[in-house]
């Protein structure tokens, strides 16, 4: 059953409005910029599509046009941070943190500078632009950097909150955003704290741990399983109640909430629009293997690249929609002890 305390949208399963998470980034930048004069935004010739234009319009003197130079942008931002600024660097995730990984590792991670990396157009829902522009490895490559916080917001509201929260904390943060519209299913009232996973739906048969817009698919899958899901005799014909966890912070991982789910439910499914190797699926698997070995199925990109297509087609093609999550739940339940 959907948790009341997280105050999700009243139109949760009734055609919720559609917006891209990158919009929340732009709105969050403006909000953070209003609260703190040290906030500056740098962008590599992608001002409108990263929604950095919202900040540029509000605070033109604190907006820095970098041109197409992601490596210099990371270094220039680090230099600005060492001079007291709070820089957000904006680009497509395929290029930042894709192309400038070493600059991020050394100048932002190792130096522990107060730089926030906004990666737009992450995931295969980028769509027709194809594999080159669909960043799928960003969670893995950012998660492995010491000092880095990694945030994957699930909708436009959470994206705005994550951006504001990133500005308020001191230290490097990677924020992951998507190009395509996705369901707006949380509200301004929904709690968001960096490092704290939220239980959106309660249940004890299996837990789905998701990050990003795919969380909405996980909630739909949970509803479907609650209505009709039965798994053979092993489950005694009873309905399947799924716990759904919003694990927006991939790092630091909320181990407490994840291990409680493993203990209570005994079976885990992870969902993300990224490579499962090193992604949320990797992070959760590491946590479970170390502390509480539990059967796990991982929804996400299965060590392959995307391709051109419409976002919805691609999500279906690569198995990132509710029906695929239902099947993963059924698979993991068969493995449950």
């Amino acid at each position: 059953m959907i948790s009341k305390t997280v105050k999700l949208s009243s139109s949760l399963f009734n055609n919720p409005p559609q917006k891209p998470t990158r919009q929340g980034y732009g709105e969050g930048l403006v909000e953070a910029g209003a609260a703190d004069e040290s906030v500056v935004v740098l962008c590599t010739d992608l001002t409108e599509s990263t929604r950095s234009n919202l900040f540029k319009e509000a605070y033109p003197k604190r907006f820095v046009q970098m041109g197409i130079s992601e490596q210099a942008m990371a270094g220039i931002a680090a230099g600005m941070a060492l001079t007291g600024k709070t820089p957000f660097i904006s680009s497509y995730a395929a290029f930042s943190p894709g192309r400038n990984w070493e600059q991020i590792r050394t100048l932002i991670g190792l130096q522990n500078t107060n730089v926030k990396i906004g990666g737009a157009h992450a995931g295969i829902s980028v769509g027709p632009d194809g594999a080159t522009h669909q960043a799928l490895e960003d969670i893995a490559t950012m998660r492995v950097i010491p000092n880095m916080t990694v945030l994957v917001p699930c909708d436009v509201h959470e994206a705005r909150k994550a951006t504001v929260a990133a500005a308020l904390m001191t230290g490097p943060v990677y924020l992951r955003f998507a190009r395509a519209n996705s369901s707006v299913f949380t509200t301004t009232q929904t709690p968001f704290t960096i490092g704290k996973a939220e239980v959106y739906r309660d249940g004890t048969d299996v837990a789905i741990i998701a990050a990003g817009p795919i969380l909405y698919e996980a909630l739909k899958a949970a509803e479907a399983l609650s209505k009709s899901g039965r798994v053979g005799s092993a489950f005694g014909g009873k309905r399947i109640e799924v716990r759904v966890i919003n694990c927006h912070t991939i790092k630091p991982l909320d181990k407490k909430t994840i291990l409680a789910a493993a203990k209570d439910c005994g079976a885990i499914v992870t969902c993300e629009e990224a490579q499962i190797i090193g992604g949320l699926g990797g992070a959760v698997a590491e946590c479970l293997a170390e502390h509480h070995p539990t059967p796990i199925e991982r929804i996400g990109m299965q060590d392959c690249y995307g391709e051109s297509g419409e976002p919805a087609e691609l999500l279906e093609h690569f198995g990132l929609t509710a029906p695929h999550i239902v099947k993963a739940v059924q698979r993991v339940l068969r493995r449950k002890k």
Binding site: A72, G75, I76, A81, T83, Q103, L110
Partner: peptide, 19 residues
Amino acid sequence: TTSGPLGEGLAQAAGMAYA
């Protein structure tokens, strides 16, 4: 600054001068 990986001091110097 932490340095060694080449070219990166120049970028940071630019950021400092800009700030």
